[in-house]
Design a protein around this nucleic acid. Structure first.
Lengths: 221, 221
DNA sequence: GTAGATAAAAGAATCACGTTCATTTAACGT
DNA sequence: ACGTTAAATGAACGTGATTCTTTTATCTAC
């Protein structure tokens, strides 16, 4: 990407773009992990001095925010309006997690930093809210529902990112039940990962709980 | 905490302890946030040079792990064995979240770093697994259940840590449904926080889903 | 008790990070 | 054509974690 050496002063054709910086950062994070996307790393990858980045972004936090935007764009809200609310939620949840799981190291970075005001993420929330309101969920409950599901999704994504044989009981331990459950899960797990199994189980559980609550809601009214 | 100046060489009475370092770190994190607990900060607080810390801990990661242990000790697993499994789970989940929510900035740090092998956290898992196995849950499902709930809990704790009027729709926006849901939630929320509402809603939903699954399990067998 | 090993502190130094500032050069607008 | 703005370099700062050396005290074995 770099042209050997560049002489001081503004170049005839611009080298950087805000978007180019974001794209490169996302790629670096995916390839080398969160630690491999420092401002220096990004600038080196782009054949540029670190200070040059600051002509296009306000700092490292800004970069992280931009990356989050990129990742969030792949969340699928197309189900709302075209499918039953429960199916739309399932689609949304799965794509949400996948969007982050596709770039594991991202999650830790992104989950920590809160959303900035004017992000396209608001559009996603709007689609989800609209679907649920149209389906008959009470206005006051919609956001709690969405946030609860989101909490689960982000937690699961975080788990998937962290998981490299974490959470394994020590051998010859004082934790027999833990060991037993662990062994049984290993045996029943095909080629699926433990994190995937937990996510599928938890999502099914939440959706079942939501359906029950929805049914109770209709009856009460 | 510091005695002005200390001369070179081993002091007559030891200044540091591994445990003292962990306690101090937790306090600093709670008081000043995650960024206020660097090795320098910790050493300054203890009236010591940063390098002195390395006689007792292997590095910053080690400190984080120790803090996690401290926080984890407050998780309540006493319900398993004395209460119905669903009540025990609820107690466990609530205390789990509270343990972290009491030190908001901790979560971001802790959730990121995976568990180290020989932690007392294994004991907690064992208690939970035992309770569920005794209640009749199939061995192979127990860990997925626990991890799924844990994902939700950690996600919720993270949300609570981040939340300071995050996730507010912009005014005069193109997100009417989002705004509507937001306003309705605000109105229905008493003095409870939005994060609490989402957690309570989600936990109730998951527990309801689990009860349904458990019932189906008994019938199938 | 004294000698050698070990432990716990200071202090100096290294390297990476994010960031700022001054400088240089090109592009843009009137 | 000229002043302003934009985009790059290069040098520097402050803070982060960490390591190594040095100094002094404690502990252990004889």
């Amino acid at each position: 990407m770099q042209t050997g050496k560049r002489r001081v002063g503004r170049p005839t054709t611009n080298v950087l773009t805000r978007d180019l910086i974001m794209q490169t950062s996302l790629r670096l994070i995916t390839e080398r992990g969160a630690a491999g996307a420092s401002m220096r790393d990004i600038s080196r990858e782009l054949g540029v001095q670190p200070s040059a980045l600051y002509n296009h972004v306000s700092g490292h936090e800004d970069v992280i925010g931009g990356v989050r935007e990129l990742v969030s764009e792949r969340i699928d809200v197309s189900g709302f309006g075209t499918e039953p609310w429960i199916a739309a939620l399932e689609r949304w949840a799965k794509s949400y997690r996948l969007a982050f799981a596709a770039h594991p190291p991202t999650i830790a970075l992104l989950a920590v930093q809160p959303l900035t005001e004017q992000s396209r993420v608001g559009t996603m929330y709007d689609a989800v809210c609209r679907g649920l309101i149209d389906a008959g969920w009470p206005d006051a409950r919609v956001l709690s529902l969405v946030v609860a599901l989101e909490n689960f999704i982000l937690g699961a994504a975080l788990d998937r990112a962290a998981t490299s044989e974490v959470l394994r009981p020590g051998v010859s331990d004082s934790t027999p039940s833990f060991q037993r459950a662990y062994a049984a899960r290993e045996a029943s797990l095909g080629e699926a990962s433990a994190a995937d199994a937990a996510f599928d189980f938890g999502l099914a559980t939440m959706l079942a709980g939501l359906e029950a609550e929805y049914a109770a809601l209709s009856q009460g009214a």
